[in-house]
Simulated scan of single mutants.
Amino acid sequence: MAIETFTWATQHGESPTLEYRTRESRFGGGYKQVVGDGPNNKEDAYPITHTGNTATALALMAFFDRHQGAKAFLWTTPLGQLGLFTCKNPAPTPMGGGVFKVTATFERAFHP
């Protein structure tokens, strides 16, 4: 199966979470050695929101259901970087009048 691309427009307002995993060894005299933890040590997550009608919310939830929180999909970050992401926590919230707000957090994924 081909990797799907998340193409719906999203509202960006919250800051992403960025962290570099490192390993650290401390020695006497205040000396320490720090190295990156593996070749893909950057962890980033992006909170997203999409507001639309019921049909769009159902299409979004079907997309997330197909990926089941574990299968990666392609998405372009707010800085324009295409990457692989997963989503474990989508939440459709009814806003009234057939409008739904779908919120989720996209976490960076890597191919083995």
Rank of each mutant, 00 (worst) to 15 (best):
P92K: 01
H111D: 15
Q68V: 06
P78N: 03
G30W: 12
E24V: 14
T77I: 00
T22K: 02
P16Y: 02
A104R: 05
T76C: 08
G13I: 05
G69F: 01
L82N: 11
H67D: 12
A45F: 04
K42G: 02
L84E: 04
I48F: 09
T103P: 07
P16N: 05
G38C: 06
L58N: 09
Q68N: 14
N53I: 02
F64V: 09
V35D: 08
Q33A: 09
N41G: 13
A57V: 01
T93P: 01
I48N: 00
F63Y: 08
A55S: 15
N53E: 10
S25G: 04
R21V: 05
T76Y: 00
T10N: 06
E4L: 11
K32Y: 09
K71N: 07
T22Q: 14
C87H: 01
P78F: 05
H111A: 11
H67L: 06
Y31Q: 10
A57C: 03
F110Q: 11
Y46Q: 04
E107C: 01
A70Y: 05
A70Q: 11
G36L: 13
M95S: 13
G96C: 05
T76Q: 13
G52D: 08
H12Y: 14
F6I: 07
A2C: 07
T7I: 15
T54Q: 09
A45M: 05
T103D: 14
A109H: 13
F106Q: 07
F100R: 00
G83M: 10
E14K: 11
E14P: 00
D65I: 00
T10Q: 03
T17A: 13
G52Q: 10
K42A: 12
T51C: 05
Y20C: 04
D65A: 12
T93W: 04
T77P: 05
T22V: 14
A55T: 11
T86L: 03
A55L: 13
R108Q: 08
G80C: 09
F6Q: 07
L58P: 00
K101M: 15
V34R: 15
P92E: 00
